[in-house]
Nucleic acid binder design. Structure first.
Length: 112
DNA sequence: AATGTGACATACC
DNA sequence: TGGTATGCCACAT
């Protein structure tokens, strides 16, 4: 087996697979990658998403509560919410409305 | 090698 | 409801 690529790259790959209008959380991604307890790393990977040449829809990744905790890391705090709303996701009080409804679970969608 | 960090998750008060 | 504490693990210095 080849050695794993950077954990970051795996995270980015999954995030890019998130369909438009869907969202997921850090824990789910971590779990999908086989590192269920590395949810923090997923968030941290997003921090590096900015340096990636390929765009990473980081706005589709929120915390377990559906809260836009990472919005401060965008160009503007509004960008994240606007992007989500543009995709048909309603955001109220920095929190996604009907989060479960829009939730996208890699484990299922990617049919491991 | 050791220490610090973090866009989380969970537990506790 | 919200602050604090702890576990967790990959990465930066």
């Amino acid at each position: 087996m080849e050695k794993h690529e950077d954990f970051f790259q795996d995270v980015f790959a999954v995030v890019r697979l998130i369909p438009k209008g869907r969202v997921t959380n850090y824990g789910a991604i971590a779990k999908y990658l086989g590192a269920a307890r590395s949810s923090r790393m997923v968030g941290w990977a997003m921090n590096a998403a900015h340096s990636q040449k390929k765009k990473v829809p980081a706005h589709r990744v929120v915390n377990r509560n559906g809260m836009l905790t990472g919005k401060h890391h965008f160009s503007t705090p509004y960008e994240m919410q606007e992007l989500l709303e543009k995709e048909g996701i309603e955001v109220k009080n920095d929190k996604i409305v009907d989060f479960q409804k829009h939730f996208w679970e890699p484990m299922i969608e990617l049919a491991i």
